[in-house]
């Protein structure tokens, strides 16, 4: 079963545990500026929103890459940047509609979420389950269940 990251901003407290775990997994240091997942804070609204790559099937970053440095991990569905092939042209960063692939100036290559090989660290450390890793075919399951509970037959749906 392929899985997807599923983010529920309502549960996020903005603690940055996900960013710390991500940067440590990918760079070996704790460093928010090197994380592939980022928590945005909308202070005046009291909202926190974790945001990262959703691994598009038709991945525009991959399509745009002139040297085929971005490949599909068939097991996880993740689009993986091959550092040795990437030439740092940044065209992928322009092609991505969501901004979730970014250039790392220190290394001269781009970086994006690779789902940690199928066991994402951000999911493991999130203290409020704002980030979960769920069946890719059923990313809407929790929302469906919540709405189902609000119907007249809610007591049956929640059972």
């Amino acid at each position: 079963m392929q899985k997807s990251l599923n983010i529920n901003p309502d549960k996020c407290t903005g603690c940055a545990q996900c960013e710390l775990a991500c940067s440590y997994e990918s760079e070996g240091v704790f460093n928010l500026s090197k994380s592939r997942i980022k928590v945005f804070k909308f202070h005046d609204e009291g909202r926190f929103v974790p945001y990262t790559c959703t691994q598009c099937s038709e991945a525009w970053c991959q399509q745009a890459c002139p040297v085929d440095a971005i490949t599909l991990d068939l097991a996880t569905g993740a689009k993986i940047v091959n550092d040795a092939t990437c030439v740092g042209c940044k065209v992928c960063t322009i092609a991505c509609p969501f901004g979730t692939i970014n250039y790392i100036a220190d290394k001269g290559v781009v970086a994006k979420c690779d789902l940690c090989g199928g066991d994402p660290e951000c999911v493991k450390v999130c203290p409020t389950n704002a980030i979960t890793f769920v069946d890719a075919n059923w990313t809407g399951l929790d929302k469906m269940r919540n709405w189902a509970m609000k119907t007249d037959s809610g007591s049956q749906a929640s059972a």
């Binding site: 407290t13 903005g14 603690c15 940055a16 009291g46 909202r47 926190f48 203290p127 409020t128």
Partner: peptide, 19 residues
């Protein structure tokens, strides 16, 4: 109370956000 806010790296999150 409109939200709960954590400081950096905090898994307790005692902070409050109000309107």
């Amino acid at each position: 109370l409109v939200a709960t806010a954590a400081c950096f790296s905090c898994t307790i999150a005692c902070g409050r956000v109000s309107e």
